[in-house]
Amino acid sequence: MLEYLKIANSPILWISVIPAVGVVLYQAAAFMRKATESGKEMGITDEQIRTAKKSAFLAALGPSLVILIGMVALLTSMGGPVSFMRLSFIGSVMYELPSADIAASTAGSTLGTDDMTAAAFANAVWIMTLCSLGWIIVSALFTDKMGTLRDRVAKGSEEVLAVIATAGGVATFTYQVANRVVPGPISDQAVACYVAFIIMFALNLINEKKKLAWISQFGITIAMISGMVAGSFLM
């Protein structure tokens, strides 16, 4: 084993990442408890909360698997603790890998090869940290202001609030799809998009007529897996 990997997987490194992951877990638990309490007082039913949890759980499995694969790609060069922390914390699987890669290169090493050094490893750790701070700074400073701004635009109209949210959803997800379809309209990614889109759209239409509980809960998972399988025929 390379010398620096002993450090990268050492107990001290594990200890150093636990507080960060701990804060994420603490926040999720605390906010969920508060939301459940307040939600019940506001008249949200136990059944609604249970359904929300169940569908969020199912929807989280697929993406978590993709993140896991990203983590495994990082593991060999960055060790367990740092890989585990970075993918549970500020940033994303799309952000961390290139960051580590660039940092290793500027330190004269190549990520995932034998020429990685302790200095290149340290460089990657610092770059992944420093270049992700912007997200949390913006979120810490401006989240409440975005709320105020939105409420000012909506002026208390539930209809406008709802349309802002659905318009945001239409825009961001269609944009993500366009980004994958435009460069190669018959690529594996594009086909995955087409198939998932058609199936989800059809399931929505069926659900509007027949109100089937399984569609609300498993619809996304079914569409997502179908898209993946269809797209992989083009790989």
Binding site: G62, P63, L65, V66, G169, V170, F173, T174, Q176, V177, R180, D188, Q189, A190, A192, C193, Y194, V195, A196, F197, I198, I199, M200, F201, N204, G219, I220, A223, M224, I225, S226, G227, M228, G231, S232
Partner: peptide
């Protein structure tokens, strides 16, 4: 490919 498929499902 799960991620692009997920984006497309949500767009739908």
């Amino acid at each position: 490919l799960l991620i692009p498929a997920l984006f497309a499902s949500l767009a739908a």
